[in-house]
Design a protein around this nucleic acid. Structure first.
Lengths: 224, 224
DNA sequence: ATGAGCAAAATTGTTAACAATCTGTTGCAC
DNA sequence: GTGCAACAGATTGTTAACAATTTTGCTCAT
């Protein structure tokens, strides 16, 4: 039985501090390159400095922040080129995930994928771009889950955390929502047919298009 | 100008503590599942407990140890199945690295690869298995370097650290040294020809064979 | 104005003592 | 003997003070 918080002060678990800081960074609550002063974070999040400290160590290992001795931590600025490099690695891993998902997929899981696709279609019909983006994440997460590889899960989530800021805007590229839907349909079709090579190839194509979309975006908005 | 160690007590840099602990774990100086008691490590390595502590945090994030609150850290035991899963991920990433290396390879780098292959051939002729293993690592490292992707480098080195103990014995499987050489030759040939798909495919084949070798090994020695 | 030099402030790193938690052991009831 | 509760020892987590280092701002000579 977990002791749980029996209702007095706002006690924060140590792993919790890490998660909250991580969310804040991923959620874009800091400017790229912004300094992360331990004392400030400690106060802002209401967690002791020691906890902030270990959270920063983990975040550095994860590649979300940079850290120089006696100079403190900064949110790591990911350039467009780097984002594409990261997407390339992610593509390699997610293609593997799609292959494994195609090999292992059961009835229930297939239905889940189909359901997400359905919701994507209606989101597209209503041009609800935010929902599209959300469902996109869900679909990828489900496929990775289906792959049943803790290693792939860990690595992809690491990579994703570094590029969310780039990615959630790709849906703004003209024509992208429609293409994205078609690409996802191809992936799911491959998995449903237990076509390992097909599913992997479809995933590779999809993520190549995402890379192109990222390039287009920064051409349009100048990396903003 | 780095202050450097001006000759008194054995001062350890904080990042150094992490590296030393990491080496020790990777080098197999602890039993799998062995408890890592902070005070003991602190004394054994002559580094303050706080440094041990942050090193352990990083090592956990890296997947080399497991950590439970108030229960301390243990060396993570990687099962054969997990090792293969990790090799699968590594294969996906190294195939990407080979592809990129084939695209970017310059003269000087080609010569490096050829030189390593040459040394592999003589090591094989003299049945110097240890050297074979060492050159194997060098070749892979060089290819990854050539790929010029910081992301791929980081991920592969993370994955490798978790499975070195499995991998360095694969060379003991009968016939493996000869096959390994041929597989590496195919990879290098692909890179030399700037054949991206060919190099990637050769790398995939190679690492599949390594996976098989790992399976064979644990069948022969029962995972010892 | 400009830049070197220096002192103060801000920030991170380290240490040691203490608190919280787990683990194993002992003694006791049955 | 078995099971259970209290206890002691070991170990990790937390805290606060202090040390080391960088950064900032100021003075002053040129």
């Amino acid at each position: 039985m977990t002791p749980a918080n029996n209702g007095s002060a706002p006690v924060v678990s140590p792993a919790d501090g890490y998660r909250r800081l991580r969310e804040a960074i991923i959620g874009g609550r800091f400017q790229p390159n912004e300094r992360l002063v331990e004392a400030d974070l400690s106060e802002a999040f209401g967690i002791p400095r020691a906890v902030v400290r270990t959270a920063l160590v983990r975040l550095e290992q994860e590649g979300l922040i940079e850290h120089e001795r006696y100079r403190g931590a900064r949110v790591r600025l990911v350039t467009e080129q780097e984002a594409i490099e990261i997407l390339e690695a992610r593509a390699a891993l997610e293609a593997l995930a799609a292959r494994r998902a195609a090999a292992r997929a059961g009835e229930a899981e297939q239905r889940k994928l189909a359901a997400i696709l359905d919701r994507m279609r209606s989101a597209l019909a209503e041009t609800d771009l935010f929902l599209m983006s959300e469902l996109n994440s869900q679909l990828h997460a489900e496929i990775i889950e289906m792959a049943g590889s803790a290693t792939v899960s860990r690595l992809v989530s690491m990579l994703n955390s570094q590029i969310v800021r780039f990615q959630y805007r790709t849906i703004l590229v003209p024509g992208r929502p429609e293409s994205s839907l078609r690409e996802h349909e191809a992936i799911v079709a491959g998995i449903a047919a237990h076509d390992q090579a097909g599913a992997a190839a479809a995933m590779t194509v999809h993520l190549s298009r995402v890379m192109e979309a990222v390039s287009t975006l920064s051409r349009l908005f100048g990396g903003r």
